[in-house]
Simulated scan of single mutants.
Amino acid sequence: MNSIDAWVWWLVGAAALGIPLVVTAMPEFGMFAIGAVAAAVTAGLGADVVIQVLVFVAVSVALIAVVRPIAARHAAQRPQLATGIDALKGKQAVVLERVDSSGGRIKLAGEIWSARSLDTGRAYEAGEAVDVVEIEGATAIVI
């Protein structure tokens, strides 16, 4: 065991920390792995074991303190570009067949959709412009 240099052990530790990173998708393990690589570099430069451990701890803690809040902030943000049915909400459509609370047809974003009115007492005639409020399955809810 003494014949293997300390930097090799640090790299083995970094690889070992990469396994739970992949399995659990917890980025903290990756930050610890980077700390182990930094400690391996320190060991390769001939630093004492105490310095190696301090570098490992300092780099790992610094990465967790800096990267984790940034990642959490990005994960909490909604995407700037709406896609799919979210992109259709708020769009205008043209009524093709009378739309009331029981159904009808509209032309929305170049496609023909089934639709129904949000207000049960309101009906829209062919040619009228309506606004899409919600999409429920394959049916557009309009006002």
Rank of each mutant, 00 (worst) to 15 (best):
A76K: 15
A47T: 09
G30T: 00
V67Q: 05
I70C: 08
A38L: 03
S3D: 15
V66P: 07
A6F: 08
W10D: 01
P20Y: 02
A25M: 12
G13Q: 03
W7Y: 15
V23C: 02
A47L: 11
T24Y: 06
A93Y: 06
F32I: 06
A33I: 00
A129H: 12
A36L: 02
G110Q: 07
A75D: 14
S101I: 11
A6R: 10
R78D: 14
I51L: 10
A43D: 01
I143K: 15
L63R: 00
F56I: 00
A14I: 06
R73H: 14
I19N: 07
A25S: 13
A75H: 12
K91E: 15
G35V: 01
A33D: 00
D86F: 03
E28R: 03
I143T: 14
V95D: 03
W7G: 02
S117L: 04
W10F: 12
G90N: 07
E136Q: 12
V8W: 08
F56Q: 00
D119R: 13
G90H: 12
E134C: 01
S3F: 15
L81Q: 12
A38K: 00
R122F: 03
I135Q: 02
S101V: 14
V61K: 00
K91W: 11
A15Q: 02
V59T: 05
W113Q: 02
Q80K: 14
E97H: 05
T24I: 09
A126T: 11
Q52W: 01
W113I: 03
E28H: 09
V57W: 00
I51F: 07
A75Q: 13
T24R: 13
M31T: 03
L45V: 12
E136H: 07
A16K: 13
G13T: 05
A109P: 01
D48K: 05
I51A: 09
I34Y: 04
V53Y: 00
L11C: 15
G46H: 08
G137Q: 07
L96T: 09
T42H: 03
F29P: 00
A71K: 10
T42A: 13
F32C: 11
A62I: 05
A115S: 06
A36M: 05
A15I: 13
I85H: 11
I51C: 02
E97P: 00
L11W: 13
E134R: 10
A16C: 15
G84H: 10
V142P: 07
G35P: 00
L63D: 01
W7A: 04
Q80F: 12
Y124H: 12
